[in-house]
C-alpha cells in the first residue's frame, strides 16, 4: 500500500514536471536585484550578409550578366513566337472575377484555338493563367494556375495531347493593361497561349 502511494506520488511529480517543460513560450527574466548586470553590446558584428563584399559583388555581377543573357534569349523567343502567333490568330480567353470556370464565350475560342494547335502538332503549348490586380497576390497565384489548368483540361477534352500542354501562373504580376479600371481588369483576367 505504502509503495503504491509513493509510486503514485512520484508519477504525479513526473507528470507535473513534464507539463512545466512542454510549454510553448519561453520566458526570459531580468534579474532585478541591486547587483549590477553587464552586457557587451556591438562587440560581434550583427550583420549576417556582408561576409565577403568583393566576392559577393563579383557573384552578383556574374548573376546579372547570366540573367541578362537568359532574358535576351527569352525575348528573342517571345518575338519569334509573337510573330508566329499573330499569323496563327490564337486568341485569349477571359474569366469572371474570382472564377476559373471556362465561360460559354471562351468555349468557342478554345475550339478555334484547338484547331490551330492540331494543325501545328509539333509545337508545345504554354497555357498562361493571369488575374487582375484586385485580390491577394498569393491567392491570385493559385487562381491563375487554376485558370490555366481549366483551359488546359478543356483543350485535352477537345483532343489535344496533354503532354503538349504546360501551365504557368503569373497571378496578377503581368497585366495586359496596367490601368485600374473595370475594362482593364476584364482584359487581365485571362488565359493566354504561347506556342514553343
Amino acid at each position: 500500500m505504502k509503495k503504491t502511494i509513493t509510486l503514485i506520488g512520484l508519477l504525479m511529480i513526473l507528470a507535473f514536471g513534464l507539463t512545466l517543460l512542454s510549454g510553448c513560450a519561453e520566458k526570459k527574466a531580468v534579474v532585478k536585484d541591486e547587483a549590477v548586470q553587464e552586457q557587451r553590446v556591438g562587440a560581434s558584428d550583427t550583420a549576417t550578409v556582408t561576409d565577403d563584399e568583393a566576392a559577393r559583388k563579383a557573384k552578383e555581377q556574374a548573376d546579372r550578366e547570366a540573367a541578362l543573357k537568359a532574358q535576351a534569349a527569352r525575348e528573342a523567343w517571345a518575338k519569334k513566337n509573337a510573330a508566329a502567333l499573330n499569323a496563327l490568330n490564337i486568341q485569349n480567353i477571359y474569366f469572371d472575377f474570382d472564377r476559373s470556370n471556362v465561360r460559354a464565350d471562351a468555349r468557342e475560342i478554345l475550339k478555334a484555338n484547338a484547331e490551330i494547335f492540331k494543325a501545328n502538332a509539333n509545337a508545345k503549348i504554354i497555357v498562361e493563367g493571369h488575374c487582375d490586380e484586385r485580390g491577394t497576390a498569393e491567392y491570385n497565384m493559385a487562381l491563375g494556375e487554376r485558370r490555366a489548368q481549366e483551359a488546359k483540361q478543356y483543350l485535352v477534352n477537345l483532343g489535344i495531347d496533354s503532354s503538349r500542354l504546360v501551365t504557368i501562373s503569373y497571378g496578377e504580376e503581368r497585366p495586359a493593361d496596367a490601368q485600374s479600371t473595370e475594362e482593364a481588369w476584364a482584359q487581365n483576367r485571362r488565359a493566354q497561349f504561347v506556342l514553343e
Binding site: V30, K32, V36, Q39
Partner: peptide, 29 residues
C-alpha cells in the same frame, strides 16, 4: 526602488545598438 540596474559595455559608440539593448531590457523588466 530600482527595477533594473545594468552596465552596458561597447567597443565603439554604436548609438543604435546601445539604445536597442537598453530599451529591450526596459521592456523585459
Amino acid at each position: 526602488n530600482a527595477l533594473l540596474h545594468k552596465r552596458y559595455l561597447s567597443p565603439r559608440p554604436d548609438l543604435r545598438a546601445l539604445a536597442r539593448a537598453v530599451t529591450s531590457d526596459i521592456l523585459l523588466t
